[in-house]
Amino acid sequence: MAMLAEPRYHSPEVLDEVFTDLEHFGPSGLPFAGGTDVVVGLRKGKLAPRVMVDLKRVADLAQGIEVNDTWLRIGALTTLSRLVAHPDVRSHFPALVEAANTVGSIQIRNRATLAGNICNASPAADTAPALLAYHARIALVSRHGIRQMPVADFVLGPRRTALRAGEVVNGIDLPLDGGVAGSSFTRLTRRRGVDLATVSVCAVVDRRGTHIAYGAVAPRPFVLTDNAGVLADPHADPAARKALLTGFAAHASPISDLRGSREYRQAMVITCSERALQTAITRRHRP
């Protein structure tokens, strides 16, 4: 059996060296941070880079979590453990905390980064629906500067993102201008504990509307918004609410796999969205 050539390992200290590596090696250069998905990919032969570019020591990549009046910025190297422990993330974005806490185990979350979870672009990535429902934007940095886009536009499909050659994630911004919001993340798994989601839903009710985002039920996560106030109204006719959520669920195109059949997932999309919405509304009106 032919041995795959061992890649090289680089640990640049500044972004400039990262860009040089990515220019030199093109698609066979693999930037990574926590490495929890990358190491598995290497071992299974799904990834065969010529050079691995470790981003963890890059001094000019945003490291921690920064907060100003309008944004909370999660630096590219922020691990999920640090994310869920941050007081501002906990108070403003509880559904992101709930979602991040379902990624792997504590051992994984101590290494894995939020940015890496999104770049990996698994249809079942748990943090994606939460970022979509909160209208997060992702900042990408290259030699040509920084560009930003909604996370919803960044994830294109299974393992596909809008990341261009020579670009890495700089950070993920969450808006703080939605007013008093209620939010909740719900996921369905086959068992308690560490498992991939069969269906995941995040609901956010803020002054711009009610945003429901779905994961694991389409090639990529997606978000839909009700601006009419039906979903946000705790006294709305349950039939009207159900009709809206059923309409939303029609955008899902789940597949059958070992975690559940297409039909089961399709039914559970509606159930999960009802649960997530109910909790979000309750949290919003909690004194």
């Binding site: 490495g35 929890t36 190491v39 963890k56 051992q107 994984i108 101590n110 290494r111």
Partner: peptide, 16 residues
């Protein structure tokens, strides 16, 4: 434990 935090050593590269 890696710098005091529990990690899966099968998912960490020695080079890191």
């Amino acid at each position: 434990l890696l710098d005091g935090l529990a990690v899966n050593s099968c998912l960490v590269l020695a080079t890191e």
